[in-house]
């Protein structure tokens, strides 16, 4: 059932999303062509325009991802989707996979696209040839550490968005928020966002695990993990024993994992036992 549900959701959105992805590719190609003319004024203007439409397309796909999930769970297609005799775990995991697919693809699209734009922009300013640009890109990609870090950040952001949106849509649609309509999910989103921020801040400050930032970045990105809390560093700063905060708390990462799990269980239970369609 998982794969059927997953395919259904992905296909539904694909019928709309494909046009926006085409738009993004179009924006890049347009930008490439315009850059090739090397007329500075026009290039700057049209590149700005294509970056704008490029990002707009990406953001739209992101919004549609949420809208389509809402329609399956609460909106006009919910009487079909929620009548499917599937285990709640299959429904939940298919939703996760659906969100993850579109967020991941879209964010990846945006990152790669922006990188191309950035390089093009610099290339125009410096007046270098495409061969040189290509070599620069190659050099950049080969610095796997940065790419790896970027990749992890994208996945992290995708999961964070996915869990937040599902949480807002599912919990915000419970009967007790019914009279708020679409305001229910919005309210739950902001509430959970505030709570998450507080939890993140507290765990960042008080959990004694952190990375020590290097004195300077000349020697590259070299981090050292220390078991101190940021709070102790701050109190040292306040008592003038130190001049600078040199550590950055990473305890929030573990707490974030735990909150994701709690939220997913919450979504599962709500979706199984508290569903209440309009």
């Amino acid at each position: 059932m998982f794969s059927k549900l997953y395919k259904y959701q992905v296909k539904e959105l694909w019928s709309v999303a494909r046009y926006f992805y085409l738009g993004m590719i179009g924006a890049i190609i347009l930008s490439l062509l315009i850059t090739a003319t090397r007329i500075p004024g026009i290039v700057l203007f049209f590149n700005a325009l294509s970056i704008l439409s490029f990002i707009l397309c990406g953001v739209t796909v992101g919004i549609f991802t949420i809208v389509y999930d809402y329609q399956n769970q609460q909106g006009k297609r919910s009487y079909f989707f929620r009548s499917i005799p599937a285990r709640e775990s299959a429904i939940l995991s298919s939703r996760m996979a659906y969100y993850f697919t579109y967020y991941f693809v879209t964010v990846l699209f945006i990152v790669i696209g922006l990188a191309i734009f950035l390089i093009l922009d610099n290339a125009v300013k410096m007046g270098v040839s495409f061969q040189i640009i290509f070599n620069i890109v190659k050099g950049f990609v080969l610095r796997t550490k940065i790419i790896g870090l970027l990749f992890i950040l994208i996945i992290y952001a995708a999961i964070q968005h996915m869990v937040s949106m599902m949480f807002a849509i599912t919990i915000g649609s419970e009967a007790k928020f019914k009279r708020l309509g679409i305001g229910g999910p919005v309210l739950v989103y902001f509430l959970h966002y505030i709570v998450m921020q507080i939890i993140t801040l507290i765990s960042m400050l008080f959990i004694p695990i952190a990375i020590r930032l290097p004195e300077n970045f000349d020697s590259g990105f070299k981090f050292q993990i220390v078991f101190e809390s940021m709070m102790s560093e701050i109190s040292r700063l306040l008592s003038n024993k130190s001049h600078d905060i040199k550590i950055f708390g990473i305890g929030f990462i573990f707490i974030t994992f735990i909150t994701w799990i709690i939220m997913l269980i919450w979504i599962y239970k709500s979706s199984k036992n508290k569903i209440s369609l309009n």
Partner: peptide, 10 residues
């Protein structure tokens, strides 16, 4: 009907 159809559990 919604309750019978398992669309409303509240």
């Amino acid at each position: 009907l919604r309750i019978l159809g398992a669309f409303d559990m509240a």
